[in-house]
Structure formats: C-alpha cells, structure tokens
C-alpha cells in the first residue's frame, strides 16, 4: 500500500517544480549541517550511516525518499516531512547521489 502510494508520488513528482535557487541554498546548508550533525560532513557517517554516493549505491530513490520523509522507526532518524515538501526531498536525494 505504502509502496503504491510512493510510486504514485514519484510519477506525479517528476513534473513537480524543483526548489528555487534561494531554497536550494537553504537545503544545501541543511544537508551539510543538520543532516551532517549525525551523518558527518562530508557525510561519511557518525551516529547515522554514511550518505556518500558509494554507500547509497544499492539503495533505491524510493527508499531514500521514504527514510527522509518518514524517518526510520527504532533509530534516531526523524521524519523530515514537517519541514520539507516532496519535491524538496527528491531534490535532496539527487544531491546526495551527486556528491
């Protein structure tokens, strides 16, 4: 059920707008520093696992999207959905892979 919903969100999201330049800068800062407080800077891991491209290579976009959006229960990873819309989360996933 959740997968179906996610797939739907993705198909729809392809056409959603990318975050604007100013917001992209905020998101980059957030990725570096707020994600970085657990995952490191560069994000080679800390309390949270490494987010370097090689560490994410075998993880699907859908999984990463879900981890950021909804968090990971039983771990320290919170849901970022209150602060990020779906297009922003997708933008972040793309950025993580490019690093």
């Amino acid at each position: 059920m959740r997968i179906a919903w996610l797939l739907g969100a993705f198909c729809f999201g392809v056409y959603a707008e990318e975050p604007g330049a100013a917001r992209q800068q905020e998101l980059t800062n957030m990725l570096k520093h707020d994600c970085g407080s657990c995952h490191g800077l560069p994000p080679k891991g800390g309390l949270g696992p490494s987010l370097m491209p090689d560490a994410l290579a075998d993880k699907s976009d859908a999984l990463l999207f879900d981890a950021i959006r909804n968090g990971r229960s039983g771990t320290a990873m919170p849901a970022w959905q209150p602060f990020l819309n779906d297009a922003e989360i997708r933008w972040m996933v793309t950025r993580l892979r490019q690093r």
Partner: peptide
C-alpha cells in the same frame, strides 16, 4: 516520567 506523552521526532541528539 511522561509515559503517556506523545513522543516527538528528535532533530538533534
């Protein structure tokens, strides 16, 4: 303490 409180996500340890 606060057993029945809603647990909020933690954005920084």
């Amino acid at each position: 303490y606060g057993k029945d409180d809603e647990q909020l996500p933690v954005y920084k340890m």
